[in-house]
Nucleic acid binder design. Structure first.
Lengths: 140, 140
DNA sequence: CCGCGTTTGTTGGTGTACAAACGGATTTTG
DNA sequence: CAAAATCCGTTTGTACACCAACAAACGCGG
């Protein structure tokens, strides 16, 4: 029977550990970059990366469903970081683009964002960070 | 300058990857165990693990703040899986305990829960799973 | 060109998640 | 012992996150 195999222990389950790690990361993010939430920053980053996109396409690019991306886009627009216009060729589509302020903010914040990633991974050694991120990407 | 060092790419950031991995895990959980959410199952598991606890203590044991655990406890009680009574020694406290149904459900579901964890980690090799979970625990 | 399936964005509902503020109970401390 | 600090649970407000249902617009096959 050896050790404690076979028992269910919450604290060892991936799902629980993922939740805790995410909580810690969001805490670090909020400390270092209070202007935007991680989700808002992700959406802004993707808009800057992709140029003009429709709202749903942005959602797909950032792993948010249609209902979620709507709220995020609304908040970014309220802050004046992005602008939306009707697509002339397809009247259903909202074309989104970063405003000058949005792009400037994004560019001024990428260094901070990288620092946040580093701080999140800080409990791991150099080699471990690389291996961990690579494995994590496979779980997405 | 070698490769692409230095640039900020959303898809390589831990926070984003954590979010995606969590999404996938929650999807797997919902498929395999639709009766409860991952959070509700975590709370029920901890109650069964710890015996009687106060509401806030349960929150701390499951990494949920007071406002969050309240909603989770309310829903578990609505389902008849846990019961709450006033603590006689400390009139502030709500003492929580699993009902017979709650305990039975928990015990009948631990095997499924373990299978969910395994399926979440399925893209990794045996050795990788162990290393990954250990590192993930350090990030919490 | 017409109908039908699909896509786009919106809304409503549920469930985490956290901050801030609160009243009441308890504990600590002067 | 009385005042201060703390802890308990609750409420309110904001922000994801997803499901299901919807109307308008699009596009394709017949």
């Amino acid at each position: 029977m050896a050790d404690d195999t076979k028992g269910y222990v919450l604290d060892n389950q991936v799902g629980y550990l993922l939740r805790r790690a995410t909580q810690r990361h969001i805490g670090i993010f909020g400390q270092a970059l209070p202007e935007l939430t991680p989700t808002q920053f992700a959406a802004l980053a993707k808009i800057c990366e992709l140029g003009a996109v429709s709202q749903n396409a942005l959602g797909r690019a950032t792993a948010m469903d249609a209902a979620t991306i709507k709220g995020v886009v609304d908040r970014l627009r309220d802050k004046g970081l992005i602008a939306s216009t009707q697509d002339a060729n397809d009247k259903r589509r909202l074309l989104l683009a970063a405003s000058d302020e949005g792009r400037a903010l994004y560019e001024s914040l990428t260094a901070t964002a990288l620092r946040i990633s580093a701080e999140t991974l800080e409990p791991l050694s150099e080699d471990e960070r690389i291996a961990f991120v690579e494995m994590l990407a496979r779980l997405g």
